[in-house]
Structure formats: C-alpha cells, structure tokens
Computed example of a mutant assay.
Amino acid sequence: MIVSPYSSACYNFKRTVNGEKEKITVIIVPIKIEENGKTAKISWACSMGQECAFLDCRYAHKKPE
C-alpha cells in the first residue's frame, strides 16, 4: 500500500464560524497508519484544518467562540 499526501480544492473553507465560504487549495495528508493483520486504518489531516471554522468539516479545528 502506498499512502501519500494530495492536493485538492476546498469550496467550504471559512476563516470564522460566521464568515463567508471561500475556495482554497488544501493538502490532505496521512498522519497515522494503524495496521491490524490484513486491514489498515489511515487517519488524515488537512493543511488548513487549524485555520478552518466550517463546522461540518471533519478536518476543521476552529470552533465557535
């Protein structure tokens, strides 16, 4: 198995919870790989996750203040 980062367009990036959505380019990267026999669990992260406030995104870390 080859796992590598990839770039993608994000159409839902928000700098603040009440802000407007923007289209930006992000990098999705593998941050953890757990192997269990013939299966593997891969955890991913977004390069802009720390800056994103889009509440429905699994990678976004900003929360309402």
Rank of each mutant, 00 (worst) to 15 (best):
T25C: 11
C10F: 03
Q50A: 05
I27E: 08
T39G: 08
A9C: 11
N36Q: 09
I27G: 09
W44H: 07
G49Q: 01
I27Q: 15
F54Q: 02
T39H: 12
C57E: 00
S8P: 03
S43K: 08
K38V: 14
F54G: 01
Y6I: 13
E65M: 05
S7K: 09
I24D: 04
I28Q: 03
E22W: 01
I42R: 05
E51N: 11
S43M: 05
D56T: 05
G49R: 00
M48C: 05
W44R: 10
S8E: 12
V29H: 07
S47P: 06
G49I: 01
E65R: 14
D56A: 13
E34Y: 12
K14I: 01
S43F: 12
V26N: 00
K32G: 03
F13V: 00
H61E: 09
C46F: 04
V29Q: 15
A45F: 02
A53E: 02
T16F: 07
M1L: 13
S47F: 04
N18P: 09
P64F: 15
K32H: 05
Y11V: 00
P30H: 08
D56K: 13
A53N: 03
S8Q: 11
S43T: 15
A40H: 13
K23E: 11
S43G: 05
E20D: 12
I42K: 04
V17W: 10
A60G: 02
K63P: 10
T25Q: 09
S47L: 08
F13A: 00
I2C: 11
C46K: 03
V17K: 12
Q50I: 11
C57R: 00
K14F: 03
K41Y: 12
Y59V: 02
I42M: 13
E22G: 01
S8K: 08
E51A: 08
T16N: 07
M1Y: 11
S43A: 06
I24K: 04
E65G: 13
Y6C: 14
C57H: 00
A40D: 15
C46I: 04
K62T: 11
A9M: 09
E34W: 05
S4D: 10
K23W: 09
V17A: 06
R58I: 07
Y59W: 08
I31Q: 13
I42D: 05
I2T: 12
F54W: 04
Y6R: 08
F54A: 03
V17Q: 15
C10H: 02
A45G: 03
K41L: 14
K21H: 05
I33T: 12
K32Q: 06
E20C: 08
P5Q: 06
V29M: 14
F54K: 01
V17L: 08
M1S: 12
K38I: 11
I2K: 14
L55D: 08
E65Q: 12
V3Q: 15
C46Q: 04
E20K: 07
V17D: 14
Q50H: 11
I24E: 07
S7G: 15
K32E: 06
L55E: 11
E51L: 09
S7T: 13
F13S: 00
T16A: 09
A53V: 02
C57L: 02
D56N: 10
H61I: 14
R15S: 04
Y59D: 05
L55N: 07
K38Y: 07
I42N: 06
K14R: 05
C57Q: 01
R15K: 07
L55Q: 15
I31G: 04
S4A: 12
K38A: 13
C10W: 01
D56E: 14
